[in-house]
Simulated scan of single mutants.
Amino acid sequence: MTYEGVLTKMQTEFSNPIQYYLVFENSFLSLNQLLDKSLEINFVGYQCLNCGKKKKIFRQGFCYDCFMSSAAAGDWIMKPELSTAHLDIEDRDLEYEKKVQLQPHIVYLALSSEVKVGVTRKTQVPTRWIDQGAVQAVPIVEVPNRYLAGITEVALKNHYADKTNWQKMLKNDVPEVDLMAERLKLENLIPTEVQEFFNPNKEDLYQLHYPVLQYPGKVNSLSLDKSPNFSGKLTGVKGQYLMFEDGTVFNVRTFEGYVVKISI
């Protein structure tokens, strides 16, 4: 059976284990049902997720022109502290920026390869943590806009990592850490204007379990640019990665906007 379409990040359902789906325009794959089965992935071409044109993907599923102009690719996406919609100041499209920035955001601690701090919109809980391959996560504060979340993250980056070590995450090389105890230490580290949103005693620890038959001892990242044709037996899904029996791992998120043909 063959499926063809444009790669976008895998859709998920929060359950035990997490359910993963690759969704194309006219079909979808339930990846949990494909564990221990052989898949063949073939690179076909490109399709920008923003303009839909068959142009080479530059970053985040966008062609170069869209990445440089679209409001959905502004610097404040990766650096929330640069958000300015709360000041009524436009970056690329104020209406879009208000819609995204002026809504509840969560600053959190997550355990994926080590304890990391991060920011997500409240509507993306727990999807954001699943996408990072976190095994545990706990909110620190819920604030009314992206800017406040951003300055909180900046303050905490002096004490915690803000990126996941993807190789450790995929090997399940995760230390034992009490995230609830870690959160208790933070009250004096967060900015003064965010103190009122801090609730260290709330019972809201998330546990996340992934559909993995075996974790690799060594990982080798698959690039469709270098290896446009690949086949292997699927042994797990974690974060936004497909994991194969030979240690090959494929980051679906990295190749958003690539058109592929997948045969089972």
Rank of each mutant, 00 (worst) to 15 (best):
Thr2Asp: 07
Tyr3Ile: 09
Gly5Ser: 11
Lys9Ala: 11
Lys9Met: 10
Thr12Asn: 07
Thr12Met: 05
Phe14Tyr: 15
Asn16Pro: 01
Asn16Leu: 02
Pro17Asn: 04
Ile18Pro: 13
Ile18Val: 15
Leu22Phe: 01
Val23Gln: 13
Phe24Glu: 06
Ser27Phe: 08
Phe28Glu: 13
Phe28Asp: 07
Phe28Val: 00
Leu29Thr: 06
Leu31Met: 11
Leu31Lys: 06
Gln33Tyr: 03
Asp36Met: 07
Asp36Gln: 14
Lys37Glu: 15
Ser38Cys: 08
Leu39Thr: 08
Ile41Glu: 01
Gly45Trp: 11
Tyr46Gly: 05
Tyr46Asn: 05
Tyr46Ile: 10
Gln47Asn: 10
Cys48Pro: 07
Gly52Tyr: 02
Lys53Asp: 13
Lys54Glu: 15
Lys54Ser: 14
Lys56Pro: 01
Gln60Ile: 03
Gln60Asn: 15
Phe62Asp: 03
Cys63His: 00
Tyr64Leu: 14
Ala71Arg: 03
Gly74Met: 05
Trp76Gln: 09
Met78Thr: 11
Ser83His: 01
Ala85Tyr: 05
His86Asp: 08
Tyr96Asp: 01
Lys99Trp: 13
Gln103His: 03
His105Ile: 06
Ile106Lys: 04
Leu111Cys: 04
Ser113His: 02
Glu114Cys: 08
Glu114Trp: 00
Val115Met: 11
Lys116Phe: 00
Lys116Thr: 12
Val117Lys: 00
Val119His: 07
Thr120Val: 12
Thr120Cys: 14
Arg121Gln: 15
Arg121Leu: 13
Lys122Tyr: 13
Lys122Phe: 13
Val125Gly: 00
Val125Asn: 04
Pro126Glu: 01
Arg128Pro: 07
Arg128Ile: 02
Trp129Gly: 04
Ile130Phe: 03
Ile130Leu: 04
Asp131Asn: 12
Val135Cys: 06
Ala137Asn: 10
Ala137Thr: 06
Pro139Phe: 03
Glu142Tyr: 06
Arg146Ala: 09
Tyr147Ala: 00
Leu148Gln: 09
Ala149Lys: 07
Ala149Pro: 02
Gly150Ile: 06
Gly150His: 08
Thr152His: 12
Val154Phe: 02
Lys157Asp: 05
Lys157Tyr: 11
Tyr160Arg: 05
Thr164Ser: 06
Asn165Val: 07
Trp166Val: 04
Leu170Ala: 10
Lys171Pro: 04
Asn172Val: 06
Asp173Trp: 11
Asp173Gln: 14
Val177Arg: 14
Leu179Ile: 08
Met180Ser: 14
Met180Gly: 00
Ala181Asn: 12
Leu184Ser: 09
Asn188Leu: 10
Ile190Tyr: 07
Pro191Glu: 10
Glu193Leu: 12
Glu193Ser: 14
Val194Pro: 06
Val194Asp: 12
Gln195His: 15
Gln195Thr: 14
Gln195Phe: 09
Gln195Tyr: 04
Phe197Thr: 02
Phe197Cys: 09
Asn199Glu: 15
Lys202Ser: 14
Leu205Arg: 08
Tyr206Ser: 04
Tyr206Lys: 09
Gln207Glu: 14
Leu208Tyr: 09
Leu208His: 06
Pro211Leu: 11
Pro211Cys: 10
Gln214Gly: 09
Val219Gln: 02
Ser221Thr: 10
Leu222Tyr: 13
Leu222Pro: 11
Ser227Met: 11
Lys233Pro: 05
Leu234Cys: 08
Val237His: 08
Tyr241Arg: 02
Met243Leu: 12
Phe244Ser: 01
Glu245Ser: 15
Asp246Lys: 05
Val249Ser: 11
Val252Gly: 10
Thr254Pro: 00
Thr254His: 11
Phe255Gln: 10
Gly257Gln: 02
Gly257His: 08
Val260Gln: 07
